Amino acid sequence: MVVPSARLPAANKLLPCLPFPVVDLSWRRTRAADRLTRAAEDLGFFKVVNHGVVASAAAMATAAASFFALPPGDKLGAGPPSPLGYGVRNIGFNGDMGELEYLLLHSHPAHVAMKANSIPNLNASHFSEVVNEYVKQVRQLAIELLEMLAEGLGLQDTRVFSRMLEDTDNDSLIRFNHYPTPPCLPGSADDDRVGNGTGSVRVGFGEHSDPQLLSILWSNDVDGLQIRLPSTSDEHDVEWVPVPADPTALYVNIGDLLQVMTNGRLISVRHRALANSSRSRMSTVFFAAPSLSTRISPLYEMINKSHWPRRYKSFTWGEFKRAMYT
């Protein structure tokens, strides 16, 4: 979940780039499932290659760029983020601030089309077609990854996670982020920075975990994503690791719901994005979520000697989402 963290202690350490787990979907399925499950347990994060979404991602990036290139008044046609819509700098309802503008949409095709038609001077039909095709492909990838996670965990029902995305009422979202070079955003200030042990840098999106099942990220060739090492226990000695940009790959974050359903075996990774001072960064995130009425609780098979006792109470995704925004 998003937490107010635009200013972190100067003692935060920025570590060199590490060799992140890479899952190649052209591998034998058992090998790929084992690799991504171990990455989800150890880090809550992994990189996916040979995913088959390259052409769709490129078209989607072009469509998103056409939206962000519109005049400010036209972009406001998407409506204020409540939470869906167009936002500038303000992130959520907790007072979080960042150096970005974003468009957050429900992944349902009808919602994408409705929002596109509300934006002046946007080629609405083309935008809707491209975005919906990308959502279709990345949602199918999310289903496949969730089933591979269930296989890697040794669950009897290997569709226990993916079934939630196959529900027509699933609450999945798609968000487009634009981190422009300064001073392009209204209200930008020089003090929106964090210490990283090497000087000050601009916060694009502050530290948070994603509340959904998992999120799948695409970005252009500009660095900015960082993940927090899960082993860190001292809040005043946070270790951040930069993730090198790769527009041909997709990055997967394990979310809060999977951490709960696996009774803490999988890690909901904390991450943030920094804004580049010389080049604009674009990213797109698909948030895989169940329907609002879906009840979430630790799976019986995940409550065992290694993960005992049961660590989380039951709740619906709707209840958790409301708590997140209030």
Rank of each mutant, 00 (worst) to 15 (best):
F93M: 09
I267C: 00
Y300G: 08
Y102S: 06
N177A: 02
V138I: 15
L149I: 09
G154E: 11
S128G: 15
D210Y: 00
I254S: 04
R163C: 07
F20M: 09
I254P: 03
H126G: 09
H208Y: 06
K313P: 11
Y179E: 01
P211L: 09
M1H: 08
Q259K: 11
F287W: 11
D157K: 01
D246I: 02
S56R: 10
T37V: 03
E101R: 04
G79F: 00
A55D: 13
N12L: 08
S291Q: 05
K75M: 00
D221H: 08
M114H: 05
Y134H: 04
R265F: 03
N90C: 11
H106N: 15
L14H: 08
D192W: 13
N123Q: 04
D210L: 00
S233K: 12
A59M: 05
L217Y: 10
S280D: 14
G199F: 07
S297E: 14
V138C: 01
A275N: 07
E239A: 12
A63T: 06
L18W: 11
E129H: 06
V130I: 13
H108T: 14
V131Y: 02
G85T: 04
W317N: 08
H108S: 12
S280E: 15
Y300N: 15
P83L: 13
S128R: 12
D167Q: 12
A63P: 06
S268D: 10
A33K: 08
T248S: 15
H271I: 13
E99A: 11
Q140E: 14
S209I: 00
P247C: 13
P81A: 10
G44P: 00
F176V: 03
A142R: 02
